[in-house]
Design a protein around this nucleic acid. Structure first.
Lengths: 217, 217
DNA sequence: GTCTATACCGGGATAGAC
DNA sequence: GTCTATCCCGGTATAGAC
């Protein structure tokens, strides 16, 4: 029946994306070959081009699937509020850093975004969506505590996502330098430091810049 | 005279590394061609192979020069202590994020390190050297303040370097999301949050938390 | 939609003259 | 050490049968 044919097609489609994830991650975009992707997926080169018009389109399709999954994960983890989310965030960071391919694909995506303006806009939009979710969690936690932070919610969101990215990369290269719970401990300490009222300018014109209740973004 | 010949050779050598930086950054390691590197440097392909035995060796040589410069910069900026270093760190982060090629080369280096164990060991060693300098600065600042931190100096160093890396990448893709002084403000707040003594489990003397959940470190 | 076969091109690396 | 010319392989993409 046509249903099984459609299912077979969809299966090949997913297999190709899985194979592309493996090969792009292991070889890098430029050095990855369509032939190896086809072989990994168990199909021929011709089949790849029946599903994707070019190597670049295949890469972009893979990245879109990856972004969708990443966003879904982020949303699912942050609904419970900050304190509940901290262990989940630590686990998520470990999963990405210790995965065989996730961190590499992230770097490949970033590099490709810098080289292809169209894809760059897509990746920036994805970052913004994730960032908005993180920012909302920060705002929620700030309101729950009933305090003000010397940094906007949006800025805290940027710092948190950037830190996660950096820690993943360091841990991937030198796992022993990034303890399992370093991310969560840092976020906790950072919130405490932002929450504490700035030290009163004792004698000199200190470089304190804390503005309680600063703007959002 | 032989001196001028040696100087010419050295000039070509440096030109090749500069050209390699440009082309590897713009195309990526896999897609970069030795022919384009030669053309950018104003020499022939044959000359490239007279200086470097392979494309990969050329890449590694470029990365070694880059590591050496990065380490020298890090050392120079951190000798003055934390407070003096904060603006310099912000400037350095902006320079890397807004440079045409530095951030890309960093990502290419990281990816190559994951794919080549020998180079991976080299890059990890470089990270460790930079990390040691940062950690020393953290220790110095901690001692200057005469306080204790709820995180080891080394961990703070890891967090600081990872955060810098992440912020560079976010700013390169979406400059408006990373203010010029975000890195320095975050470091300052983080130290403040780490410095604050963890709330005693029994009854906090001066701390007023209207919410049952306590912050763990 | 999947296969085999192939057109077509570009890149890494080398040879040998100067 | 630098050049030109070339070898040779492997890659993207397509054609056409089933």
């Amino acid at each position: 029946m046509s249903g099984s044919r459609a299912a077979a097609k969809a299966r090949t489609h997913e297999n190709l994306l899985d194979a592309a994830a493996t090969v792009f991650a292991e070889r890098g975009y430029g050095a990855a070959s369509v032939e190896e992707i086809a072989r990994t997926a168990g199909v021929s080169v011709g089949s790849v081009y029946a599903h994707f018009t070019s190597k670049e389109k295949l890469f972009v399709a893979l990245m879109e699937r990856r972004s969708a999954r990443e966003f879904a994960t982020a949303q699912a983890e942050l609904v419970g509020g900050f304190e509940a989310a901290v262990p989940a965030l630590d686990r998520q960071l470990l999963a990405e850093a210790d995965s065989a391919h996730l961190a590499e694909l992230g770097a490949e995506a970033w590099l490709h975004a810098l080289r292809s303006p169209a894809f760059g806009a897509e990746l920036a939009a994805h970052h913004r969506r994730v960032h908005d979710v993180v920012t909302a969690m920060v705002a929620q936690e700030r309101e729950r505590r009933g305090t003000t932070l010397s940094m906007s919610d949006s800025e805290v969101g940027t710092v948190a996502t950037a830190l996660a990215r950096g820690l993943v990369q360091y841990r991937r290269l030198s796992p022993e330098t990034v303890p399992d719970d370093l991310f969560g401990r840092t976020l906790t300490a950072l919130l405490r430091g932002l929450e504490a009222p700035p030290p009163p300018p004792a004698s000199p014109p200190a470089s304190d810049r804390a503005v309680p209740g600063s703007v959002d973004a």
